[in-house]
Design a protein around this nucleic acid. Structure first.
Lengths: 214, 214
DNA sequence: GGTCATGGGACGTCGTTCGACGCATACGCC
DNA sequence: GGCGTATGCGTCGAACGACGTCCCATGACC
């Protein structure tokens, strides 16, 4: 069979990723197969291997799309204004909504592993750091200059905490009945943790939450 | 080939689960196959289907063993005494150590999903609640009688928070370099969250879900 | 001798490879 | 410029080994 010239290589890549994403979205990673992708885009399985190294490579690129979509969502939410706590809560709830709207795509990020011996590509790590940067950004007003390390740690703790609540709740492993439960837990985490942060600050006299340092 | 009578059904089950656990431990869930289990225990693949419904069933029972092992570890850690915060931190670090010693077994709990339409069995949910009960237990001294709902929420938030840190850290998705990083984040979470709890208590006499922000 | 655990082949699936095919393009020739 | 041929390479689909699962003749135990 000769070349078709119906799609440019770039279009073909997108076609494959789009199909793969749809399959994962509706049937989970376990439902993904090279043959099923090929069927959907009316190409043969072999063609996929012209564009990607293997199925893992396809999956990794779908993950990239998911991370981008999540980042877009968080970025949009940060556009509005409001007090610091409110912004953080909006971020967290946006994260939770995203995972609830796209549970299988989000699960993909954690159930798919690189074959042994190969690390995550650096662009992947950069996308992760970009997400974390959103939290640090929202957290910035609470930390005076010079406390970047503290801000970074707080951002990671909150990010991981929200992730944990989200993860256990979508996996149905937190003994939570309602969706609302996860939202409440997130508010509790953020409210209480930030209260603890402020308490430590004022208690130690090192810094004040919202006021400028003398 | 006739019956062997070299193993009782119960022994055979254990043999299968043991082999499956070893495979997952060394190669991850993706490396597990009925044929590989059969090879290791010197039975044929068909025999596995006499003892278990299918491979998912085998995996689910391996998960049960992992949950039991984790529970035993947490229980042992709670035996000692110390102040409340110390006990909680010991719990959390025990959880983290367990996941670091058995990363693939622990991952199993989250990368394996029930086939669509079937829920987690109730005994599985009970094991999860048993784990959560450990946290509530350690948290008990901080809550007066009548605040069981608050204690339950705090336990879930802390459990999920530690889980999130652990999860992202073992998946290498928290931009953490050292193992020590995860430990520090956990201490920060517990210390700061509990400080926030205490602040809310002394301020309002009792904490409330959303009003924890002063 | 009857029961039934067991072995192992069968079926349809999978990921991945690879050589043959034939379309799109480039070139040679008139 | 037009036409025929040669070349390159995108594409197909068969092939391979491994997979989950099913099935039933077999033959070891009671």
């Amino acid at each position: 069979m000769g070349r078709r010239s119906t799609h440019t290589p770039q279009q073909l890549r997108e076609l494959i990723l789009e199909a793969a994403q749809e399959i994962i979205q509706s049937q989970g990673l376990a439902g993904l197969s090279a043959r099923e992708i090929a069927r959907r885009i009316s190409y043969s399985p072999g063609t996929i291997y012209n564009m990607f190294q293997n199925l893992d490579d396809v999956v990794l690129n779908v993950e990239a799309r998911v991370l981008d979509a999540l980042d877009a969502r968080l970025t949009a939410v940060l556009k509005g204004d409001g007090d610091t706590v409110g912004r953080i809560e909006r971020l967290a709830h946006a994260y939770l909504s995203f995972t609830q709207e796209n549970p299988r795509l989000w699960n993909l990020l954690f159930e798919h592993h690189m074959p042994a011996g190969t690390d995550l590509p650096s662009w992947y790590q950069q996308k992760l750091e970009g997400l974390m940067a959103r939290v640090e950004e929202a957290l910035a007003p609470m930390f005076p200059a010079g406390r970047e390390a503290d801000r970074q740690r707080a951002a990671r703790v909150l990010w991981a905490g929200v992730h944990g609540i989200t993860s256990l709740s979508t996996a149905d492993k937190l003994s939570i009945v309602t969706t609302d439960g996860a939202n409440r837990l997130i508010d509790d985490l953020i409210g209480t943790y930030l209260a603890g942060l402020r308490g430590a600050e004022s208690g130690a006299g090192a810094q004040e939450a919202h006021s400028a340092k003398p």
